[in-house]
Design a protein around this nucleic acid. Sequence first.
DNA 1: CGCGACGTTGATTTGCCTCAACGATTGTGG
DNA 2: CCACAATCGTTGAGGCAAATCAACGTCGCG
Lengths: 190, 190
Amino acid sequence: MSTPLINHIKQFIDLDEHEEQILLAGTQRQSVKKKEYLLKEGQVCKANYFVEKGCLRIFFIGEKGEEQTAYFAIENWWISDYASLLSQSPSSFYIQSVEASEVIVFPYAHQEALSKGIPQTERYFRILMQKAYGASQMRIKYLYSLSREEMYRHFQRQYPDFVNRIPQYMLASFLGFTPEYLSEIRKKKI
Amino acid sequence: MSTPLINHIKQFIDLDEHEEQILLAGTQRQSVKKKEYLLKEGQVCKANYFVEKGCLRIFFIGEKGEEQTAYFAIENWWISDYASLLSQSPSSFYIQSVEASEVIVFPYAHQEALSKGIPQTERYFRILMQKAYGASQMRIKYLYSLSREEMYRHFQRQYPDFVNRIPQYMLASFLGFTPEYLSEIRKKKI
DNA sequence: CGCGACGTTGATTTGCCTCAACGATTGTGG
DNA sequence: CCACAATCGTTGAGGCAAATCAACGTCGCG
């Protein structure tokens, strides 16, 4: 069996055919329409989502009602509210598709069950979480040291294709500023 | 054997006496003087640090030479540069003690070795990393939605004792603003 | 075709920074 | 244990990056 998810996992741990089947059996593929929600504020997050195709985001609602994007996930990335997932407490985020997407729903209960039968999956998720946390430490660094304009240039350099794939107001909210200011920055650049 | 580290681990996984000994055998206690460094920029991070007593911080040097604190760790917290640790690449951070501290040095090589002999340690570190990443997601949320003054009030409410334990310039840099501005905020509050 | 969502532009405002100078406190060597 | 330096904290004047607000183009979709 070769799926994007299995391929991703096998970059970090070994699985035999039988284990692959057990692992996949507990998941399900879901087609998600543009702007459809996988989680809403107040709900308890029940699954980790692996993006096979398309793009998801996690956002929250600011004081004045604006949607503030916290993270994006594209092909071969995971996305979830990991605090809500771990403690099974109500989430303060929304998870929504940015474009029509194909997602693997990986229930947390399944992850917990696998931890006994296929212990190396814990290793996979440990590495995943450590990568994510490491990236988050770097993001904190950038948030503290770069100006808003530099944030945009930096993001543009790192993900040149992605910049044109999402609405500008989402990109602006992800970078931590207003759509108007992004417009101003873009005007400057020839 | 009961040490703060073992107690912490046993909140999440089971260990028998023999396993505890193997686990501790690969670690070492280190007394760290105030302002002493455990890691400097450019070095590859080799260990995860567990704070038994005292306080550490991880910071980086900004464009104008200022020290920007990214995280603090107090009793029973872990601290490290997890990106550098995972990929064994040069760090862009410094790890330094804020006060005289007692630290358990947990080499990453030891963590890797344990993952074979005592597989449930992977589970412990997975939960640790997931908690840390979840907290990081919340921190992103606060950074995006609160003003600098609200950040301070929020932090003060959450860690009232800690506020008076560290120099104000470190707190200011952690909250993402200048010592002068923190001074101004404090003046307002009666 | 028309409406609503998205993007742009410019005028004005503001939260926070910068710089400089001055107190307060801490630590250290004589 | 004191003196004095270094570090840390405060205050105020002035400046700038980015927000706010409002108005107007434009595009995609039902």
